[in-house]
Every structure is written in C-alpha cells, then in structure tokens.
C-alpha cells in the first residue's frame, strides 16, 4: 500500500525532468517493474489515476511494463531467472548471486507533446 507515495515521487521527478528539458505537456510516462520491486501494478495505476488529477499530468497515461527477475552468479558469471525467489545459481549451485533486474521501479521515458 505504499504505491501512493511512490507515484507521488514519480510525478514530482517527471515534472522536474520535463521542466529541465524545456517543458511541455506530458502524454505518457513509461515505467517498468519486476516481481521484487515491492509494488502492485494495479495499485500503481489506481494511485496514478487519482494523483494525476491534481498535477500537471491530467492528460498523461501511465504505461507499466512488467519485467522478470534476473540474477547473475558471481562464481560462474551466468545469468538466470530465479524461480520462486530462489537465488541459488541453477548452473553451478553457488549461492553467491546478485540481483540484476526486477527489484526496482524504473522510470524508462516520458513522451511530451509540444
């Protein structure tokens, strides 16, 4: 249920970026998130629908792309998609692995009209 705070932060960051880029009306905000991002896309969309009313983004659409969880093994250097959040390397069995993607909400891009 922290999607509200997250979307609020997203909107203020986008506002700053667009202003620094010369301004304009935001038509689309594209983000991607994975299974360990700690957000529910449905709740993000609901929060966005409410919050955009009081922002400069009344016209904007939020596009959420879901990405899989990806990890890399530090022993054999192979990447894999952890199943059921098991981070043991399926190639060599090592537990020395790091998350590469799927654990964050990434702001990809913004489409701005003139």
């Amino acid at each position: 249920m922290h999607e509200f705070a997250l979307v609020r932060s997203l909107l203020s960051q986008v506002a700053q970026i667009v202003e620094a880029d010369g301004g304009g009306s935001v038509q689309e905000i594209r983000v991607r998130c994975g299974p360990l991002a700690g957000v529910e896309p449905t709740l993000m969309r609901e929060a966005f629908a409410l919050l955009r009313r009081d922002s400069a983004f009344v016209e904007a659409e939020l596009v959420i792309r879901e990405e899989p969880l990806r990890a890399r093994c530090r022993r054999c250097d192979q990447t894999f998609e952890p199943q059921r959040f098991r981070f043991r390397c399926p190639h060599c069995g090592s537990v020395d692995t790091i998350t590469e993607s799927g654990d964050a909400v990434m702001i990809e891009s913004v489409v701005v009209g003139g």
Partner: peptide
C-alpha cells in the same frame, strides 16, 4: 497537427534513486 512536436525523453532511473 501537433504530432511532429512530440518528443521522448529517455530517463532510465530507479524511482527511488533520490531517496536512496
């Protein structure tokens, strides 16, 4: 005819980057 004025700003940033 405003479509030719549309532009894409690439960001590629974690939404929590500033908070972090």
């Amino acid at each position: 005819m405003t479509s030719n004025e549309t532009r894409v700003i690439t960001i590629e940033r974690d939404v929590t980057a500033t908070a972090r």
